[in-house]
Simulated scan of single mutants.
Amino acid sequence: MKNKILAALLTGTLIGASMMPYHAFAADYDNSQTTEKKYASGTEFEQDDIVYILYKTDEPRLRVKEWKADKREAVVPETVEGIIVDSIGNSAFIKKENLIRVELPSTIREINDHAFEDCSNLRTVNFPACLEKLDSASFNGCTALRDVKLNRCLTSIGLCAFQSCSKVNSLTIPGYVETLSSHVCQMMTGLYTLRLCNGVKKVVGEAALNDYDQKRIIIPPSVEELEPYSLGYRFHSGNYDGITNTKIFGAKNTEAERYAHANKIPFVEFDFKYGDMDNDGKVTSVDASMVLQEYVSRSSGKHEKGFTEAQELKADINDDFVIDSADASAIMAYYVYLSSGGDYTPEEYFFCS
């Protein structure tokens, strides 16, 4: 009976995987579509309740200056008057309390200071593939924001960028962000998983302060410096106190292990081979099948667990702390992606947009 269940689940996984979208880095917008009209720097345009300002003229570019509406949804276009929109300006959407959803075009490269600060009901925003910078306090106070999936080519995240985003359960910092700034994740009280991708080198003090319920912090060997109180602490009544339920996952003899031991945080050795359950150096259908087998075993009513903590982290692709068919499907989808010529690493594919 168990084999029949496993076969049925794996068949469904194969079908689902074949329907998964192909992820590719968006190329820069085609400049051939840019208008031949000439405008002076500082020229403003207004379209569909959004005010734009021309801030660059040699290669004309527009920045969103202000959203004048009070609606539930905002859609920023790729071009206005034939000119590319590539930036969200300072405080452009600040304190828009009715805003629930934002759709940004593939041309956006920067989201500037305080752009969406205190949009207290904002739940959904996409992070385009070409986005390079998230400036200070860009999403500070977005207390309803969920499912933040940053793009893999992001290079900079400013101070307090996601401060008080208390509904975000999982956050992955892409590898091109070499330094995680102070207070980026402060008061993200629902942040159970904080993952640093390979390439991150430094975490500044108080980067994730007061994340009370954090369960796991994943630190790759590329991290060379973790400043005091950078991870795993809360600040209360003038004192720094360690978070009691968190664990650090990292490689042996690295800064991650040093920091964990120095700060009396439980350390779990991890090999960073996401999805590679049989440790053969590849992600294949065999790995998906192993995850399904674990799921079936746990669903049998006997609560049997065959995976170690490190294996659970490798298998829990959607960061929900449950090993199930959704994780197996994601692993299978990555196998199909690789088979079609894809070159994203497992970290990039599973955890970045």
Results as ranks from 00 to 15, higher is better:
C119D: 10
V80D: 01
A27R: 14
I248L: 10
A7Q: 14
G250S: 13
D320R: 09
L134I: 15
V184L: 03
G341Q: 10
I50F: 00
D49C: 07
N239E: 15
D113P: 06
D271Y: 06
K149E: 04
A74W: 00
S156D: 13
L159G: 05
K38C: 10
V268P: 11
R234T: 12
L54C: 04
D276P: 04
V296P: 01
D113G: 03
Y295V: 03
D70C: 03
D30A: 12
R298L: 07
P77W: 05
I53K: 09
P77F: 03
E347T: 06
D28E: 15
P228I: 14
A310G: 15
E81W: 00
N210R: 12
S87R: 07
R234W: 11
S325V: 15
T308R: 08
I84N: 00
K247C: 12
S339T: 11
H23M: 13
K95H: 13
M20G: 01
G205I: 06
K273E: 14
T107A: 04
I265C: 08
A326T: 14
C142P: 04
E304P: 00
N112E: 15
E227G: 09
Y337D: 09
L159E: 13
A328M: 12
P128F: 02
S120E: 11
T43Q: 07
I173F: 06
E178Y: 05
K4P: 00
L231H: 05
S136M: 09
E257D: 08
D28F: 11
F93I: 05
S237R: 14
R123D: 06
L191H: 08
S299I: 03
F307D: 01
E103P: 00
L104Y: 01
Y334N: 03
D280A: 11
S170Y: 07
A144K: 09
D278H: 13
A251M: 13
V102R: 00
G89K: 03
K65S: 10
L154T: 02
L159W: 14
G250R: 01
R72L: 10
L194N: 08
S353Y: 06
F270V: 09
S285L: 15
F25H: 12
G232Q: 07
A17I: 03
H303E: 12
G205H: 11
H261C: 09
L9P: 02
L292S: 02
L150M: 12
S353L: 04
V268Y: 07
E255N: 07
S325T: 14
E46M: 12
L104E: 00
D327T: 10
A144H: 04
C119S: 09
E73A: 10
D30G: 08
D113T: 14
K247Y: 11
S181T: 10
T308P: 07
K37R: 14
E294N: 11
R298G: 11
E257P: 02
V184W: 06
E224C: 11
R152I: 01
Y229W: 13
R109C: 07
A161K: 05
R234H: 13
D86F: 01
K305V: 13
T345F: 10
I84M: 11
N112W: 04
D135A: 12
S237W: 10
T244E: 15
M20L: 08
V286R: 11
F93E: 02
S156W: 10
Y233E: 06
V51E: 05
